[in-house]
Design a protein around this nucleic acid. Structure first.
Lengths: 213, 213
DNA sequence: CCGACAGATTATCAGCCGATTACTAGCCTC
DNA sequence: GAGGCTAGTAATCGGCTGATAATCTGTCGG
């Protein structure tokens, strides 16, 4: 569970690499739990440092979260931004999103930001990220807005399924399984589709459209 | 902000109606803030009662939230369930969802449950609700699963926009405005689309498909 | 009038959480 | 090898939060 392990035994590390380590640990714990539901001590333990040191390095819990959230959303935006406009842009954006699925925590953290819209600072970052993704999809594909919207909607649905734990809890609800299978079919690495046991992950017929038509 | 007002001045009320009052207040405060980000005292103040009484009536904060969440998700499911199967089912489900949009707090609360998938009790309820909605859409319309998925994805996107506050913060991000306008165009009462000031809520061209094709 | 029960509050607690302070210890330079 | 800077921790604190206990009060049957 700890992010430390393979790092330097335990001794002095440069402040910069500690920051990275703590941010990595924070991504994991904030991805479960969200902002309000996570303590700085959880972050510290996951990173293998003391709780006051987390505060020392980032100033406050909120600043830590905001820096993390900014990094994550920027990463997502950059991954999609490199796609060049053209007739294949839709497919390439789909591929880019699939690449993002390799690290579920990033997308789960994004979702936490979306529903934290009531918090001014977090909400502003989240809205910006959502808008940026839509703009990229719309501009790169040159498709009508409803098509870009459908692309984003599909991505958001997958994010929600990730956040809700639909994949981890496969086999508990037939309809949810069908929705999850239909949504992520062929888009998530197999290690993610069947994480615990080999559930009823049989692909559903008529459910394999890619990105936008 | 208080839910009391038009209720009995302040004096003794039947326990049952107090429960309803508290649940109504809890819906409002949990819709902002989510589960972890909301205190029982906030609920109590919004309901106009003392904090210990909230605990007394519901046992614990978690039980209060779970009862509220169950009610809300059941309401959503019931609203969609009454649609009868047939060729118009898609349009009627769209209308049913629009009716749900009249009370944003319910949908915002639902979203909080989705991202709280790490909490076992809340996550189970949320996953069940999501699965149930998909099943209803799929069975009532008789459409292929990808079409039902698209319907759910569209609804989820609108829920995310609501949760992120995209409508309240219209005018701050062009792309987000376009996405919101394109997604909720004609689906949200005008009082909701332009809540504060008359932002750039001009309808976007080519963006008015209803439900599923 | 009077018990008695249900509605509701005040007072209070134990635990947690974010943050501050003061301190220790490694590493680099001269 | 001393000075000093930076990495890091232990100790601690004030405030908040969920929950409990004790108490008060309105209302209703008899």
């Amino acid at each position: 569970m700890s992010v430390v392990e393979s790092a330097q035994g335990s001794r002095r590390m440069t402040g910069e690499s500690r920051r990275e380590q703590i941010l990595a640990a924070a991504l994991a714990v904030f991805a479960d739990g969200g902002y309000a539901g996570t303590t700085t001590d959880q972050v510290a333990r996951a990173a293998g440092v003391s709780q006051p040191y987390v505060i020392r390095l980032f100033g406050s819990k909120q600043q830590l979260f905001l820096e993390l959230y900014q990094r994550v959303s920027e990463h997502v935006i950059e991954v999609m931004e490199v796609v060049s406009a053209g007739p294949d842009a839709g497919a390439e954006l789909g591929t880019a999103y699939v690449a993002l699925l390799a690290d579920r925590n990033r997308l789960r953290l994004l979702m936490h930001g979306f529903v934290a819209g009531s918090d001014p600072a977090i909400g502003a970052l989240a809205r910006h990220a959502l808008g940026a993704v839509f703009r990229i999809v719309r501009d790169r594909t040159g498709a009508p807005e409803w098509a870009a919207r459908d692309f984003v909607a599909h991505g958001v649905l997958i994010n929600v399924l990730l956040a809700a734990g639909a994949l981890e809890h496969a086999g508990e609800d037939d309809a949810l399984d069908a929705l999850a299978s239909c949504s992520v079919h062929g888009r998530v690495p197999s290690t993610l589709t069947a994480p615990t046991a080999g559930g009823p992950s049989a692909p559903v017929a008529g459910c394999d459209r890619l990105s936008n038509r």
